Amino acid sequence: MLLSRILTALILAPLFIWAIFSMPTDYFSYLLLSFVALGAWEFTRLIKIDQPFYRTLVVSGIIGCAFIASAHAENLQTVLIVSVVWWGLNLYWVISYPKNIDSWYGSGIIRVMGGVMLLAPMWVALSSLHANYGNVYFLLLMLLIWGADTGAYFVGRAFGKRKLAPKISPGKSIEGVIGGTIFAVIIMLAFLQNQNIALQSYAGYLILAVIISSVSVLGDLYESLFKRTSGIKDSGNILPGHGGILDRIDSLTAAAPFFLLGLGLL
């Protein structure tokens, strides 16, 4: 399992980095939209929509909402703030699980709206990040998430004793989260040195790294809520060793809006 996970990452990560630096923003946004579409298709399975027609309808609705949000660039900050507030609410669902399940997994409309809020703001944030801040900052976000995930995995396996959310994701530990945060801070420090950013700006960037590391865990746990409730281990099996697309972008769904909003405040 670990070997296939590593091999998949070694193949896909360089290709994605190439896309970040080589593709114009418009084309790159459509590449990201393909990931959104695949993630939305997998999400319909997590919310127990089985018929292909209705699954396609939900996917089309999520993509449509993403386009509508993206078309109003002047409201970008509003989209980001709404997303951040929504993730704050998700934190409550994660902490209170398994109570209040009906609040976020009740009617079909609520479940579908969960998919819209999960994926549409992420796509808008990522497209805007690539367009307005460039490929270097886009890569920084990816490295922060990958570093936090890698650090949490290995530190958690080596030292993890205290469970973070045993009712949702028994494999995650508090020690792992701390390890992931340390990895993210180290990556941010390397970025700051490489970009020759003024020393007085370091504090803001390092706080941003801690926030991104933390909310990436929240994104993972939020997806796990649906997997746990629907009785599904992985969102899909398209990526050997990693599961589905949604399993790979769950951290990004939360981190992208926070990162773009944070950059605007620095």
Rank of each mutant, 00 (worst) to 15 (best):
I174Q: 08
G147M: 02
A198Q: 09
T229A: 14
Y205I: 03
Q77Y: 15
V94G: 06
L261A: 09
S224C: 07
M188G: 03
G39W: 08
I174T: 08
D234F: 04
A9R: 01
M117V: 12
L260R: 02
L206H: 01
L266M: 13
I212F: 08
A40R: 03
L208S: 00
L32P: 02
G151E: 01
A9Q: 02
I47G: 01
A203T: 05
G236K: 11
L208Q: 01
L2R: 12
G156F: 05
N194H: 13
Y54N: 11
S214T: 14
D234C: 04
V58Q: 06
L118C: 10
I17L: 01
I197K: 06
W146P: 01
N194W: 14
P52L: 05
I187A: 12
G88F: 11
H242D: 05
S251F: 07
F154R: 05
W86S: 11
H242A: 01
G151L: 02
Y205N: 05
R45V: 10
R157E: 12
V215I: 13
R5W: 09
L199R: 02
V185S: 00
W123K: 08
I101L: 07
A19Y: 00
S128A: 12
V136N: 09
A37F: 10
K163H: 09
T78L: 15
I187L: 15
F258M: 08
G88A: 13
G64F: 13
A73M: 14
T253S: 15
I81R: 15
Q200I: 13
N90H: 15
V36L: 12
V79A: 06
P240S: 00
F226T: 03
D234K: 02
K167G: 09
S96Y: 10
I238Q: 00
I238T: 04
L2N: 11
L141A: 11
D102K: 13
T150Y: 05
L139D: 04
F259Q: 01
L15E: 02
L15T: 01
A254P: 07
L208G: 03
R162G: 09
G171E: 06
V155N: 00
I11P: 00
R162K: 15
P166W: 05
T8L: 00
L164F: 09
K172Q: 08
V85R: 15
F16I: 05
I168S: 04
H242W: 06
A158Q: 06
M1I: 13
L266C: 09
I168R: 04
Y222C: 14
V210G: 04
G61T: 11
G151T: 05
L10A: 07
R162D: 13
Y222G: 12
K167C: 10
P98Y: 11
G204H: 13
G156A: 05
I182C: 08
G176L: 08
L3R: 12
R162N: 14
S213R: 15
V94R: 08
N194I: 11
P14D: 01
S60I: 15
G180I: 03
A158F: 06
D250T: 10
V82R: 13
V59W: 00
G180R: 02
I207C: 10
L221P: 02
L76E: 07
A13L: 10
S214Y: 12
R162A: 10
G134E: 04
N132S: 08
L221C: 06
D247C: 08
M117A: 14
T78D: 14
N237K: 14
W104C: 06
W146E: 00
A40K: 03
I17K: 00
